[in-house]
Amino acid sequence: MAPMLEVEHLSTTFAEAGRTLTVVEDVSFSVEAGETLGVVGESGCGKSVTSLSIMRLLGSSAKLDGSIRFAGTDVLRLSEKEMQSIRGNRIAMIFQEPMTALNPLHPIGRQIAEPLRRHLGLSRREAAERAVHLLKEVGIPRAEEIAAEYPHQLSGGMRQRVMIAMAMACQPQLLIADEPTTALDVTIQAQILELMKKVRQEHGTAILLITHDLGVVAEMCHRVIVMYAGQIVEEADVQSLFADPRHPYTVGLLRSMPSISGEQERLQAIPGAVPLLHEMPAGCRFAPRCSKAMAICREQMPELFVVSATQKCRCWLYREEGEA
């Protein structure tokens, strides 16, 4: 079966003050129907720009290279009008902060009804009825009343449910969720994660889940890509990533997390900070912070080596083990 989404050699660059900044560099991955792919990394690693590139929501200052095939169609070759018929319809997106993603001036019900009328051609009344039904499906109590309310009248968890209802309105084949639970409290996060699992099971939706929370990754994802400074540094199935992480950055990330189930006296922090976009090191981008850095790491960028059937790693330590 062909993957639902296939990204190949995607690079996203921005021109700023006479210089070119590469925010996403040579990123390739795929997601199948019913599968959840996690994209993990810290601030500035390019994970959100990757998702906005797929949606083509970056505006004219961004230059996209490579190919992004959604259900066989190269998204980068579509006209803006063709893109609009896909966006919110066959590909939907959930953002981190539902308050800024919802229109404060329109009632909830009308906002959910809009894509239904636009993409599915439903009448005003049909769309309104379907909107109430969708609100019930995402577990919103008093759905009829809530449909007439405005975003500011709802709590953060309720707003995120509304976002999910809106995203699922046209039964998309691909759902891009960018930090969907980061702004929520843990007990509300638990509710939203359950809801996303239900949606995935019932509709076989492919999900691209962007998060910095490795706990959420372990619970939700089948496969994971780890990004650092605009590149994929490791790709693995979720079991291997946690049982046998290969890239020193992935290892460092896992070790620097405090654990809720055990005690450790000191955390193993990763020294230093992520390099700035215009000051990227010549070799491996993680080398300045890496405890295992060798001479070659500072000079030459490693490729994404294949280390097992399900795992790839951008690190010179794995050169002998696999081939790119």
């Binding site: 843990v186 996060q189 638990a190 706990g215 372990a218 619970e219 979720v238 946690f242 049982a243």
Partner: peptide, 8 residues
Amino acid sequence: AVPVPDPT
């Protein structure tokens, strides 16, 4: 409610 970083 806290997600634990252990898929097993």
